[in-house]
Amino acid sequence: MKSPLRKTALVVAAAGAALGLAAAPSSAASTNWAVGPGSPETVTATTGHASLGVNGIDMTCTYADAEAVLASATGNPAKIGTINSANFGRTGEPCTSILGNVTATTTMPWTLWAYGDYDPATGTTPGYIDNIKARVSVATCAFDVTGTAHGNYKNGGAGTAGKLTIHATATELTVANPTSGCSGLVAAGDHPTFDAVYDVVVKGTSNGATVVGS
């Protein structure tokens, strides 16, 4: 997908085709995404705080985790990972809300995409998660959440985890198929928020994975 070698002006992320290499990599859309230390690389992500909110009702997890396989890719956006498992809460530490304990059952896999401009100064890649599907339930209210969630990934290193920050935009997650127990609380078409910061390491180590765009 690379264009002929020609210095161009700034390009815009995510939307369109890559327009070629720029003199300063930070001002041009990256099209090569190199995953490290190896590719493919299995990574695990954990967080001590993840929260989903809808209609003023917040649901907080003091533990959530996920596992994914990252692989180098080209394109913009480019699919750099497949998330094979995502758990919210764990035995003895469920996610909670003012209505009670919250259970989220996820349907995998989800996909991880890189897009836009890689920032070499901070080692940060803009990205988003796609193909999100989960069923969230509190007692008699259960509903599906589907869509995407934007965020970014900041590289780690030896002994330092990478940071995956997720902050869903206003409408990218959507509620569907609510049970009658949700009446008055959550309706089909509502847009939940989702926020979490995960520590990401190569599975079995304390070393962060890296994504470098160029």
Partner: peptide, 15 residues
């Protein structure tokens, strides 16, 4: 009551 870490503690009908 919601605790500082966001966890709810106390009595709810469901918990």
């Amino acid at each position: 009551t919601r605790q500082p870490n966001g966890v709810y503690a106390g009595y709810t009908l469901t918990t």
